[in-house]
């Protein structure tokens, strides 16, 4: 099985996200970089699929030269190959990004053979456009379902019957999709449990040859003007008290909100 995972380099902010003075980007001074937890899970899923079925996994990223770091992280947990489309910025719009990534995937497939599964994050951690994977899949003519939170790794994906069974979480359960391969999915955190890099993985990642590609894709119709911090309604926090002594004040509040019913005794609830 051949699996591709697309990951996007983003800053790793803490309690607050600062913006540069010109409003053009997140101020990443003193910040490390990471990727969306969705994409981390996507990498893990790719490694598991290849462990179960044999084959090869490949990571693809579009952005700045430094996104090499995310490629090596992917290799440290077991991804086999990497391609970086170096466009000198993390700021390409979704249509342009998708078009460049589609070209890159075609180029990789021409040399290495077609991918059975393309894995995207449900949405990127920063811009969250909810579309790059869908656009790429459509351009390549492959079925795509987003918001996938479960994949049947072992069943139905070998031999003749090449179907990927994928599940999407809803309020009341799961929707089941059966995608004929080659196919694409957008995954959510929780689909699997990402492993930590091992020492051996880290060493291997140092030796990884990251393929660097370029792109001349044309801009799309969405242009960022600037970033702003949303207005927060800064309400003065009302301190209801300290420790157990605050319980009566909390119960008063619950009553005010209509969330406390005297009727329900503890026994009834426990029964």
């Amino acid at each position: 099985m051949r699996v591709l995972v697309c990951v996007k380099r983003v800053p790793a902010p803490g309690a607050k996200i600062n913006i540069t003075d010109d409003g053009q980007s997140v101020d990443a001074t003193n910040l490390g970089h990471t990727m969306s937890p969705h994409e981390e899970c996507g990498l893990e899923l790719a490694v598991q699929l290849v462990e179960a079925h044999g084959g090869e996994s490949h990571v693809l990223t579009l952005g700045v030269t430094e996104a090499d770091e995310q490629c090596r992280w992917a290799a440290s947990i077991g991804i086999n190959k990497a391609t970086l489309i170096d466009v000198g910025t993390q700021g390409w719009d979704p249509q342009r990004t998708a078009s460049a990534m589609t070209d890159a995937i075609r180029a990789i497939e021409e040399v290495d053979g077609g991918f059975d599964v393309l894995i995207f994050g449900n949405e990127s951690a920063d811009t969250g456009g909810f579309q790059v994977g869908i656009r790429v899949a459509r351009a390549l003519g492959r079925p795509m379902v987003n918001a996938i939170k479960g994949v049947n790794i072992s069943a139905g994906i070998d031999g003749e019957n090449t179907v990927l069974e994928a599940q999407r979480e809803t309020d009341s359960g799961m929707e089941v999709y059966k995608l004929p391969m080659p196919c694409a999915i957008g995954v959510k955190e929780g689909i699997t449990w990402p492993r930590y890099p091992t020492m051996r993985g880290r060493l291997a990642s140092k030796k990884l040859a990251v393929d660097v590609a370029a792109s001349d894709a044309a801009p799309g119709g969405q242009t960022m003007v600037r970033l702003n911090r949303p207005e927060e309604q800064v309400s003065e926090t009302i301190i209801l008290g300290e420790g157990a002594a605050a319980a009566p004040a909390v119960i008063e509040l619950l009553k005010e909100l209509g969330l406390w019913s005297e009727g329900t005794s503890k026994q009834e609830v426990g029964a």
Binding site: P13, I17, G128, T223, V225, N228, R229
Partner: peptide, 12 residues
């Protein structure tokens, strides 16, 4: 919204 609602983006 960007960053899941932590930031706003003005766009054309």
């Amino acid at each position: 919204v960007q960053w899941g609602g932590s930031l706003n983006e003005d766009a054309l």
